[in-house]
Amino acid sequence: MLENSFSKVYTKFKMDLYSKVFKEFKDKDVEPLSAMEVISMEIIVALGNPTINEFATAAKLSPPNAAYKVNKLIQKGYINKIQSTEDKREYHIEATEEYKKNYGVIYDYIAVVLGRVQETFSPDDVKKLDEILETTADELMPEVEIGEEKKIK
């Protein structure tokens, strides 16, 4: 039962993401991202402004392949490269406002669902759900590392 319920919630979030990835852009000046580019952007956002090498490691890409993907995303206007203040040879990458405007709506559905959770369940139940999710993310999923929690809006 737990597995089916969790799988259903996870699948609904994925379906919302996929439908937004394939939507038609009204603004014809915007160059849409391919599905693989959206996945790359999702990794970059999840890592919290990584270096190109950190992105390569997380995505299991060779550094040259990761650099190629990053450069394509820069050309499309969805990534900024920012020189590290600590090591001038290193650059961090971050999502641009253009990405947030066109693809950040992906995160709106999370807020909608969580608002419904808070309206439907007691504050104690919501707190317990938060604790369960926090423990799951922090302790029960050590194979997957993400950067600082960031919300795109």
Rank of each mutant, 00 (worst) to 15 (best):
P32W: 00
I39A: 04
K153I: 05
F121E: 00
K127V: 04
M15A: 08
T120N: 03
I110E: 09
V70N: 00
D138H: 11
S7E: 03
A67F: 03
Y78K: 02
M141I: 12
A137G: 06
V112H: 10
V38S: 07
V112K: 14
Y103Q: 02
M141F: 07
L73D: 02
V38E: 00
V126K: 15
A58C: 05
V45H: 10
A111M: 02
E134V: 06
K12T: 09
N4D: 14
E31M: 06
V45Q: 11
K28V: 09
Y99L: 03
D108W: 03
Y68D: 10
Y99M: 01
L129V: 05
E42H: 11
K60V: 01
F6L: 04
I82D: 04
I44H: 12
E134H: 14
E139L: 10
P50C: 00
I106Y: 04
T120K: 09
K28H: 08
K151R: 12
Q75A: 14
K101Y: 07
S5R: 13
V45W: 00
G147I: 02
I82Y: 06
T136N: 09
K12S: 13
D108A: 14
A46R: 03
V144M: 04
K153V: 10
V144W: 02
P32D: 04
Y18N: 00
P50I: 02
E31L: 08
L73Y: 04
V105E: 13
L133T: 00
N80V: 01
D27L: 07
D124Q: 14
E94M: 05
P63M: 04
N80Q: 09
G104M: 02
E90V: 15
K60R: 15
D87P: 05
A111E: 05
D27A: 10
P142N: 09
D125G: 00
L129G: 15
L133P: 01
K72Q: 13
I132D: 14
M1R: 06
Y99F: 11
D138L: 08
K72W: 00
Y91N: 03
H92F: 15
M36H: 13
E134C: 11
H92K: 15
Y109A: 13
Y10N: 03
V70C: 04
E24T: 15
K150Q: 10
E148S: 14
E131Y: 13
I146Y: 06
N49Q: 15
V70W: 00
I106N: 01
Y10V: 15
R89C: 06
Y18V: 11
R116Q: 12
V21W: 12
M41C: 13
E94Q: 07
L114F: 15
P64A: 06
E149G: 04
D138T: 08
A59G: 12
E24I: 14
F55R: 03
